[in-house]
Structure formats: structure tokens, C-alpha cells
């Protein structure tokens, strides 16, 4: 029998929620496979214990893709061993998990580059090129000058 001593007695209790979530994921994956309907489950909104979460993570396992993002703190994304089932874990500023979801999709939105970001990046790249051209031009002319002097 487990003792009641630990103050956080229930962090390691298994409630059976992992199994429930698992079967919901299976349903959603069926739909995604059949019609391409994407969906997600907010894990942070469920009263899961740490043990439940651990169990679910174990059941789902890890698949081919893993990514670490550095977006206002860390975010971990991985595809589980079931293709199309992704785990997205957002960390806050102090390394605490602030939001966690299962996404049933081709690829989680957070991984995609937004067009607006691309536009801003293009601008920046343009500027960088201009700067580069300008500096190369300057380098060249100074090199020419040097060779004349030589």
C-alpha cells in the first residue's frame, strides 16, 4: 500500500485519464486519415496528474520527427510513433510547462513559417544583400586602389 505521507500525494496517482485520451486520439486520427480533418486536444486543460501524462507519453512514444523551438522560451514538438499525432509542449519563461497539446495534423502550425514572417525576413535579407554588395564594392575599390599604389 502506498503511504499517504507525501504532501503531493496525488502527483503520482494514475487516474485512467491517459487511456481515455488515448482512445479519443484514436478516434480523431481515424477522422484525419479518412477526411483530412485536423484537430487537437488541450492536455493542460485536463485534470491529468504527472503520472497520467507520463503514461500517455509512453503509450504514444516517439516517431521520426523532433524539433526544439526557441520562441519566447522553449517549445518541444515531436511526432509520436503514430504518424499524424504530434505532441506540442510549450515552456514559459521559467522553464515551466505553460501549455501542452496533442495535434492531429500534417504538421503543427507552430512549425510552419508564417507568410508575414517570411515577408519581414525577405526585407531583412534584401537589406543584408544590399549591405553585402555595398561592402564588397567598397572592398573591391580599395583593393584596386591598393594595387595601383603597389
Amino acid at each position: 500500500m502506498r503511504s499517504h505521507d507525501a504532501a503531493d500525494c496525488c502527483a503520482d496517482a494514475v487516474t485512467g485519464l491517459a487511456e481515455a485520451v488515448l482512445s479519443e486520439i484514436a478516434d480523431l486520427l481515424d477522422q484525419f486519415a479518412a477526411s483530412g480533418a485536423q484537430s487537437s486536444i488541450d492536455l493542460s486543460g485536463l485534470p491529468m496528474t504527472d503520472a497520467d501524462r507520463e503514461k500517455l507519453a509512453q503509450r504514444l512514444g516517439r516517431g521520426e520527427v523532433q524539433a526544439t523551438l526557441d520562441v519566447a522560451g522553449q517549445t518541444d514538438v515531436w511526432e509520436t510513433q503514430y504518424a499524424g499525432v504530434w505532441w506540442v509542449r510549450h515552456f514559459g519563461g521559467n522553464g515551466q510547462v505553460i501549455s501542452e497539446e496533442i495535434a492531429i495534423t500534417h504538421v503543427p502550425a507552430i512549425l510552419l513559417t508564417h507568410r508575414e514572417d517570411a515577408r519581414a525576413a525577405a526585407e531583412r535579407l534584401r537589406k543584408a544583400c544590399e549591405v553585402l554588395e555595398a561592402t564588397t564594392a567598397a572592398d573591391q575599390s580599395s583593393a584596386e586602389r591598393d594595387s595601383i599604389h603597389a
Binding site: D42, S44, G45, V71, A72, G73, T75, V88, H90, G92, I98, S99, E100, E101, I110
Partner: peptide
């Protein structure tokens, strides 16, 4: 990311 935080 902020939006998923708020949604949560």
C-alpha cells in the same frame, strides 16, 4: 504560442 497559452 502566446495564443495557445491564452487558450489554455
Amino acid at each position: 504560442k502566446y495564443a495557445s497559452y491564452v487558450a489554455t
